[in-house]
Nucleic acid binder design. Structure first.
Lengths: 216, 216
DNA sequence: CTAATAAGTTAGGTTAAACTAACAATATTA
DNA sequence: TAATATTGTTAGTTTAACCTAACTTATTAG
């Protein structure tokens, strides 16, 4: 039930992502320090992220990103990185301004523009070889089915599941390339009703989370 | 006393600018329709724009942009136009996405990045000849002195005044190229105390409005 | 293993930007 | 010109994102 994240909430996600590189258990105080906000503001924001299934947290406990949160944070990180690189290497903007502008533009830029930007950077050979740009393109252009609002139409791009879960989804007829529509989403995003190949399916949230959709 | 405008308020300014091309007397209802908000929201926003000296309006009367409002609106228009052109012509993004992204990016992009973007568009000969790009650069990189917060340091880029007003400003020692610092600003932005060439000057708002500052 | 310190939460307040509903002023038209 | 319609304002809510201050729970140091 992510639907859409405000810039402010995206900033929290990004900071949590950064901090969890040093220590996967992130604390409220560190987030507050990084974002220059009061602890109470963080508590509130974390509640929201929790409700949207982007972080795990219990009372007085540390914060960890969920798989979903990880994905959304990674999207932001790559947007930031690519925009910043473009500003520095193509436009020759100072590093400082590039960072600041990237921080703001990353929250509003469309996927289409991001893909076009990647193409430009690729054509000029400005991309580091240590990032798998094809994976980044897929990351940016897809959403986990568990994040989509009722009514959304798209195409299954990938089923990120193995073993039993994968088998079950295949059996239901969930395969890459299929068109899909989200019919209904229960409170808390579980379960999710969808239509694939004319069939109505009801998926558990953890099943839906494994399915990557490219929105039309 | 503009100091800074939120994206929402910038949108109002832009719409007023657009509408005033057809008819210089803009009405609340038209703005509401264009922005898809309630009339009461517009009334409120206009009050703010009025307080910031960007529009003129009296009770139940039509809205007109002030000189200041005109300048700020023009900045936004050019940002929009240039970003959109870049997205379409350089990145080959669809016209629709280019418009949407430009609408969002224009509110957050820095002047430095805008100037760099212009340079790129110039070097590729993508700019229409009917816009005076040197004037646009000056427009984007300057602010009217009447909009600056106390403490701001900058350089006088131009004195946009003629006749008596120009003569008086020259006499005070206000000339292009001088460094300037805003010392104090009275409530309602009138008068404004500044330092130029070591001298303390007190300017009326209409005098300050004519002085364009490039912020350091 | 307490006592002091730090971390997290709760309660209550503020601001910007929206909203609806009711009302007042202005325009239109019959 | 009176009746109607349109336009603009006011009052009162709502939501997101912040805040401070007071409090509770954890952690750390003697």
């Amino acid at each position: 039930m992510t639907y859409s994240l405000t810039p402010a909430i995206q900033d929290y996600l990004e900071v949590i992502h950064d901090l969890s590189k040093h220590d996967s258990k992130v604390r409220i105080t560190d987030i507050a320090r990084k974002l220059n906000v009061a602890k109470s503001s963080v508590t509130e924001a974390i509640e929201l992220l929790h409700a949207k299934n982007l972080v795990q947290k219990e009372r007085y406990g540390p914060i960890t990103l969920t798989r979903n949160g990880e994905r959304e944070a990674a999207k932001l990180k790559y947007k930031h990185l690519l925009i910043s690189k473009f500003l520095r290497d193509v436009l020759n903007v100072t590093a400082d301004t590039a960072e600041k502008d990237a921080c703001l533009i990353e929250h509003v830029v469309s996927v289409e523009t991001m893909l076009a930007l990647i193409q430009l950077l690729e054509s000029k050979n400005y991309l580091d070889n240590d990032i798998d740009i094809e994976e980044v393109k897929i990351l940016l252009s897809t959403n986990s089915l568990s994040n989509l609002a009722p009514g959304t139409k798209g195409t299954i791009k990938r089923v990120e599941a193995t073993g039993e879960l994968r088998r079950r989804l295949m059996e239901m007829g969930v395969t890459s390339g299929d068109d899909i529509q989200v019919k209904r989403v229960a409170p808390m995003g579980d379960p999710i009703e969808i239509t694939v190949k004319g069939y109505n399916l009801t998926l558990r949230k953890n099943e839906a989370a494994a399915i990557l959709i490219e929105i039309n």
